[in-house]
């Protein structure tokens, strides 16, 4: 019996799809069988991040409408035999699927795969309900910005009200240099507010853009700091104890302090 985990955030553009693709790929690289469900109906992106956009035949809505079998719609990943994508249709609305259909779909998959990861659309309307209905665990993606954390708090409240078993945070796009200069909230400021467990901290990283360009998740790139953070997150999902990425205030040398001072003075 597999686990069903929804990746959600409330706010758009904080890295839900990237997080889904990287965690899914990371889990598959460790031998787990994984299905990624793109619930962003009408605005699908997960296929592009995975580099699978040219391999799509059927989509999620065709599955729930009974026009194909679920195994026909699953797109096998190029690099991992045990990783599959269930794509969202590009031409339908969020209400093309009902929560009941999602429950049925997920229960038809959960016995055959270790992990079902659901990429939730932004917002807290119908698409959110469809994406969360079948899951009992959630990964909240937030960036260290006031509006992102505010929306995350709203989503955590909604998930707690329906008794989610586990809600954990991925703090994305952290800039250690900005945290050090006190120009960005640190992990504590965010977790004090959200009061949920931290699954991982992902640094802001150019490799993520390059990975999206190529359609190869950064978790497979040993040179990518964000990729490393995602690999650690995948391990933590498997209950492997990995220390948190150190994003702490760096001790400045005298020379750096001087530089800092002059930078401020300008």
């Amino acid at each position: 019996m597999g686990e069903i985990i929804v990746v959600t955030s409330g706010k758009g553009g904080v890295g839900k799809t990237t997080t889904t693709a990287n965690i899914g790929t990371g889990l598959a690289a460790m031998g787990k069988s994984v299905v990624l469900i793109d619930m962003d109906i009408g605005l699908r992106n997960l296929d592009v991040i995975l580099g699978l956009e040219r391999h799509i035949v059927y989509d999620l809505v065709q599955v729930v409408e009974g026009r194909c079998r679920v195994k026909q719609a699953l797109v096998k990943d190029k690099r991992h035999d045990n990783l599959y994508l269930l794509p969202a249709p590009q031409t339908r609305d969020k209400d093309a699927v009902t929560p009941e259909q999602m429950l049925k779909l997920c229960s038809s998959l959960v016995d055959d795969y270790d992990y079902i990861l659901i990429d939730c659309p932004a917002g807290i309307e119908q698409g959110f309900r469809n994406a969360t209905i079948a899951a009992n665990k959630a990964i909240i993606v937030a960036t260290p910005e006031v509006n992102s954390v505010r929306d995350a708090d709203r989503v955590v409240g909604l998930l707690e009200s329906v008794n989610f078993e586990e809600i954990r945070l991925v703090l994305n796009r952290v800039r250690p240099d900005m945290v050090r200069r006190k120009e960005m909230m640190d992990m504590d400021a965010v977790t004090n507010v959200l009061a949920i467990d931290v699954l991982g901290i992902v640094p802001d990283d150019e490799h993520i853009i390059a990975a999206g360009n190529k359609g190869e998740p950064a978790v497979s790139d040993p040179a990518s700091p964000a990729g490393l953070a995602y690999a650690n997150i995948a391990q933590r999902i498997l209950d492997i104890n990995v220390p948190m990425l150190e994003i702490v205030e760096k001790k400045l040398t005298f020379g750096e302090k001087l530089k800092e001072l002059f930078r401020k003075g300008r």
């Binding site: 006031v146 954390v149 505010r150 709203r154 006190k182 960005m184 909230m185 640190d186 400021a189 507010v193």
Partner: peptide
């Protein structure tokens, strides 16, 4: 250093969350 915008963000966030 004087409070950076990170501290302002933290205070505003705390207040906004409480109000929300």
């Amino acid at each position: 250093p004087i409070a950076g915008s990170g501290d302002i963000a933290k205070n505003r966030l705390d207040n906004i969350i409480m109000q929300d």
